[in-house]
Design a protein around this nucleic acid. Structure first.
Lengths: 193, 193
DNA sequence: ATGGTTACATACCGATGAGTACAGAAAGTT
DNA sequence: AACTTTCTGTACTCATCGGTATGTAACCAT
């Protein structure tokens, strides 16, 4: 009813996302966050609860954005194979607000926090399953349209590609040779033949 | 010349490896280390330099052990395809001292530290390249022996499989369904057909 | 304009972080 | 047995951690 927030919550969340993305959860301090979010300490606690709660909110926002982005990417592609190629290529080149060598926030979280926190294990696993589901639909559409061989096991391929996409996102963090990852992607696409 | 160390350095390093493996670099404190290594704070600094130096030593030891283990695994398998299958299966089941849901220390490091530290980026990338090289040799041996089709692109397949192996190790950290990863591995093995 | 409420900003809290000084204990050498 | 050297263990430093108390400024309804 009185005195509205002076900062935009979504904008602050985006800033927090950037910081967690760059530094990881443990290495990010509250001071890092308040500086980049442009707000004061007590405001952070009042608006977002605390470091862990803020991170959960940030991660949730990230998965929403990321999955929507991937869904659009896949559905707008001219063919099933192109869809998968564009998706994997995007991981290499960092499309959709990604910075290549920072990988995927959700995958980073899977590595850092999933083994120690059940809720993060569940959240990150769920993210991965949703990607698999999107890929499965893309592949099945391709089969239905006659672009892909009817004998393909859409579920198995979607799972293999998801695992590979995770590996690709992680590999990017070590700044690999361009030819290395391009080559891997090309080979992975033969799963669709 | 006088008073030898009261602790075994290699044993202490193994203990430190365990801790870093479980908690990651940032989340591990010196107290965590000294407790599990069974030594006192100043002994740690005297013997290993400091947290970062200790971690570098630990990571070096880890890559040595891991690569030797993988090399043996691949070379002892009855066939090229079996070799790759056993390797990927090992990631799922946690062979060779691995604990499944902790993933691979070197891959964890790639995620946590590679983007912020050039030396770790190099070290982890090198680890990955060595695995690729081992896989390439295995595949080429298979082709030479007639187990695998002569038209296969050994380099590309080795790269794709390495990326997938990385993804698999990461995926394991979120405690996925057994069928999910088994399925993915089976599908990935079709790259060798 | 004013009262009641909420956000902001400074300054602080205890706990813990990495790293070290220093004294006492143990070993090899003579 | 005494001396020198190195390791061990306690206790400390200073910085920073996550989180909070408190006073002040800003807003809205009346």
């Amino acid at each position: 009813m009185v005195r509205p927030r002076e900062f935009d919550e979504q904008q602050a969340l985006s800033a927090a996302m950037q910081v967690f993305w760059e530094k990881g959860y443990e290495a990010t301090s509250i001071s890092d966050l308040t500086t980049r979010m442009g707000i004061q300490r007590p405001s952070l606690y009042a608006a977002f609860g605390g470091k862990k709660e803020l991170f959960e909110t940030v991660l949730h926002k990230y998965t929403q954005i990321s999955l929507t982005y991937i869904e659009n990417l896949l559905s707008r592609a001219p063919s099933a194979r192109e869809a998968v190629r564009i998706y994997l290529q995007g991981i290499i080149e960092g499309g959709g607000g990604r910075q290549t060598n920072l990988g995927c926030l959700c995958i980073n979280t899977m590595v850092e926090l999933a083994p120690h926190d059940q809720s993060f294990a569940h959240l990150t696993k769920d993210y991965q399953l949703r990607i698999t589901e999107l890929l499965r639909q893309t592949i099945e559409d391709g089969i239905r349209k006659g672009e892909l061989a009817s004998g393909l096991n859409a579920v198995a391929i979607a799972r293999a590609l998801t695992v590979s996409a995770v590996g690709l996102a992680v590999t990017m963090k070590s700044a690999p040779e361009h030819a290395y990852v391009e080559n891997a992607v090309t080979e992975l696409l033969t799963l669709l033949v």
